[in-house]
Design a protein around this nucleic acid. Structure first.
Lengths: 145, 145
DNA sequence: CTTTGTGCAAATTCTTTGCACCAAA
DNA sequence: TTTGGTGCAAAGAATTTGCACAAAG
């Protein structure tokens, strides 16, 4: 089956009416699992959809989040990122190039909190910051110069 | 010893020249461990320091972060928060009232990543979102109405 | 003096809102 | 024909920048 067909079904599963724009956006998220920002999604889709507006990206991401089809990622202080992988996993953000990777969580159960009966936990976020291999090497070079 | 005196020494420890503004801001952070935003710091200090500007808050927080005297907290998608507790601990943010609490980490060593030799990790952030006791109760009420 | 800190005003950037138009049921 | 989706233009909010003045050594 082609991607768009799978995307349509995925949207329906979350009670989201599959419009052209919504399919294109979700399709992009499914194929580019780099936790893009609204701006990155817009820039990627604009060439083939020149009538697309950023408002639609924001509207759509809000809808997707509310329906549980994507998760908003607050890591970067500049912009919110979006993740279609709604399963529990960690993230790594490179302070050099700004890219955000997925990381498997080793001890997932260790993250369960104890003694917080008072709190109603709905989301767990674990992320690491640092430098990816490439940026770490470039940093080293710059220091040597 | 009074707080301001301790604050001055704390700043010097991080190679930060203790100006009036910097002392006032650091002093506030030390006494109000609620991870305030720049705006909250400004509003708290403005009454007693009417010449204070938000630019100074931002300049100062940037300096403090660079010198390692505070940690920037990216949890809230609206604004960055600041934490003087630079030790490794988790945070909880209430989606109702927006408050951010500290949480002790149960299995701190469990957060160490394995198999990421390629990555240079400099920061670990763990946070939970949900509803605090008060907001959870109010939510329940609203649903019943 | 010379360096460093402060703060106003303006600029920038990300995101949201109001509103009109368009498309689908 | 009514509802919901799209997108322009403007508003809003958080943060940064340029610059001039003040303070400290």
């Amino acid at each position: 089956m082609n991607t768009v067909q799978g995307t349509r079904e995925y949207l329906l599963k979350y009670d989201i009416k599959p419009s052209m724009q919504r399919i294109a956006i979700m399709d992009y998220l499914m194929e580019h699992r780099v936790h893009p920002t609204a701006d990155e999604i817009y820039n990627a889709l604009y060439p083939t959809m020149p009538t697309l507006s950023k408002t639609t990206i924001y509207n759509t991401m809000k809808l997707f989040s509310e329906q549980g089809a994507v998760k908003a990622l607050v890591i970067d202080e500049k912009n919110v990122r979006f993740d279609i992988d709604t399963s529990s996993h960690a993230h790594f953000m490179c302070l050099g190039c700004g890219c955000v990777y997925d990381l498997p969580i080793e001890n997932q159960e260790a993250m369960q909190l104890e003694g917080v009966g008072e709190l109603m936990i709905t989301e767990i976020h674990l992320y690491y910051k640092g430098y990816c291999k490439k940026c770490a090497e470039e940093n080293r070079k710059n220091i040597l110069l």
